[in-house]
Amino acid sequence: MKYMLLINAGSVEDQGCEPGEWMTFDKEVREAGVFVSGESLADLVTATAVRVGADGARTVTDGPFAETREVLGGFYVIDVPDLDVALDWAARCPGARGAGSVVVRPIADF
């Protein structure tokens, strides 16, 4: 079963932990054979939001957004047998430490 690990930094300023820890985690995920995909996202100041109104008009706004408290910094999709295994991987992720959090969401299976 596939789960997405959404890696949130605690704040915009939060730069996360050591790159070395991320490289180790990334290596572990790949070597364990559970890696499906994963990316880290560029800085929040580069974000742009698009909305389309009922009349079809497009509104484009610059991010970041004032209301954002947790900032999505990246994600992994992993394929593991059940939630407990997914939670174990989330707990090993450096993004789960400090002010950060990792939200585990099952990928919908249609």
Binding site: M1, P81, D82, L83, D84, V104, P106
Partner: peptide, 8 residues
């Protein structure tokens, strides 16, 4: 069911 919380 959907998040597959295991029975173990």
């Amino acid at each position: 069911h959907s998040a597959r919380i295991p029975f173990r």
